[in-house]
Simulated assay, not measured.
Amino acid sequence: MPAPAADPVSRNALVILAAIAGGATLYWLSEILTPLALAMFLAVMIDGFARVLQARLPGVGRRAATPLAVILSMAIFGGAAFFVADNAASFANQLVTYTPRLNGLIARIAGLIGVDVPPTVTQLVQQLNPTRYLGQVARGLQDFLSTAAFVLIYLGFIIASRHGWERKAVSLFPNRDERQEAVAAFLRIRNGVEQYLWVQTVTGLMIAAASWVAMAVVGLDNALFWAILIFIASYIPIVGGIVGVALPPIFALVQFTTLWQAIVLLGVLQAVTMFVGNVVQPRMQSRSLNMDPIVLLLALAFWSVVWGLTGAFLSTPLTVMTMVILAQFKGTRWIAVLLSDDGNPDQLRNKHPHETPDAGVSHEPAGRRSKRS
């Protein structure tokens, strides 16, 4: 006698309870799962980079593409880190020459708020007593290095063992149709992550280029350093906007004796960041990822609470993965429909330009595929 089917109310209640339990588990295991999630994200990025190199560079085969992509990625990240660190050191030394102007700026601000004897920069530093925070900074740096080491270890094992996943897929899904659906779901997740990287890179370049032009026009020192820093920070939602809008105008107040440079920078950077962040980026993400812009905003808030800064960085790829997985099951498909932008979570709206379809995999919806033995 077949078991009675669960009513929709009970089934949806179970889904909601499972989502709450899953979120709590992700929060409790964040120290273990965040390095693994970052490593998987980097592995997908390197895999996409390798396919681009294989398609664009003549003579680069499949076996050579992945090592070349790893080497180039490490060179790019290492070069960017060296440039930022080198310029940050010179920038910190340059701040010493700005001490008199900082004291003058503090005096002007103090006069506006009615303080008769304004403090100097030296007195403020002594009151803050930065030596109290050396322990916290050291622990934060130690945690960062430990997380980075785990990410690299996980990344190495993921890249080394990726060829075994094909045999695992055959063992997990002996039926050809089920295997095709699983591979198609994986391709949608992979393409979603790659398209997210593409959107963030394009919009980050737009913001950084416009910011560099504005800073160069007003004559702000270290304009290229600020532009690269803004581009790197643009991969982190919210934080990139704060860096791009707030810091250059603040240092314009320190560098210049007049206020119009800081006002111009604040207005231009605010306009550029708002236009790209509120108009260009949501439209590109919703069109390429098939995700509702409101869902992307809520996902940013959710993953930031669960995994902190790592969750904010990975919020969009994780939400795309969640939508694709939920769309595979009848009981949770309604959630995937709500997460999607056009109500069809079965596929991304645009294929990745460098996608190479796997042999024997159909990208049509399951209901339209012909049955094969």
Rank of each mutant, 00 (worst) to 15 (best):
V264G: 07
F231S: 05
P249T: 07
S286V: 12
Q195N: 10
V245P: 01
V218L: 12
A216E: 08
I207G: 00
N278H: 14
N191L: 04
Q261A: 07
S234H: 15
R283L: 07
V264F: 14
A252H: 02
Q195L: 14
G277M: 05
A223K: 13
V268G: 06
V276F: 12
I232L: 10
V199H: 12
A223L: 07
A271S: 11
Q261T: 08
L266F: 15
R287G: 07
L220T: 00
L205E: 07
T258V: 13
Q281F: 11
V193E: 06
L205S: 09
L247K: 06
D221R: 13
V239A: 09
V213F: 12
S234R: 08
V254F: 15
F231G: 02
G240F: 13
L247M: 03
Y196I: 00
G244E: 00
V213P: 04
G204E: 01
Q281M: 15
V254E: 12
G219D: 10
M206D: 08
R287L: 10
A216P: 04
P248S: 09
T257C: 02
G277R: 08
G240H: 14
L205D: 03
V279M: 07
V268K: 11
L220Q: 02
F256S: 00
F256G: 00
W212Q: 06
Y235K: 00
P249M: 05
T257K: 10
Q195D: 06
A210N: 04
T201G: 06
Q261W: 11
I228V: 15
W260D: 04
D221P: 05
D221A: 11
L229Q: 02
F231P: 00
M215S: 03
G241P: 02
L220P: 01
A246C: 12
L205M: 14
L266W: 15
A271C: 06
W198L: 13
G267F: 06
R190N: 11
P237H: 06
V239E: 03
F225K: 11
E194Q: 12
G277T: 00
Q255R: 04
T258F: 09
G244H: 10
A271N: 06
Y235T: 03
A252S: 11
Q195I: 03
R283D: 04
L259G: 04
V213N: 05
G241K: 06
V199E: 03
S234A: 09
A233Q: 10
N222S: 12
R283Q: 13
P249I: 10
W226S: 00
S234L: 05
V280E: 00
A216K: 12
M274P: 01
F225E: 07
G204K: 00
F231Y: 15
Q200R: 15
V279T: 14
G267S: 13
V254G: 08
A271F: 15
A252R: 00
I238Y: 14
A209P: 01
V264N: 10
R287F: 10
A214F: 13
A246S: 12
L229C: 10
A209W: 05
I238S: 04
A227F: 08
Q200F: 13
T257M: 07
L266C: 06
I250E: 04
L253K: 03
W260K: 09
A252N: 08
V264W: 10
A262N: 06
L220Y: 02
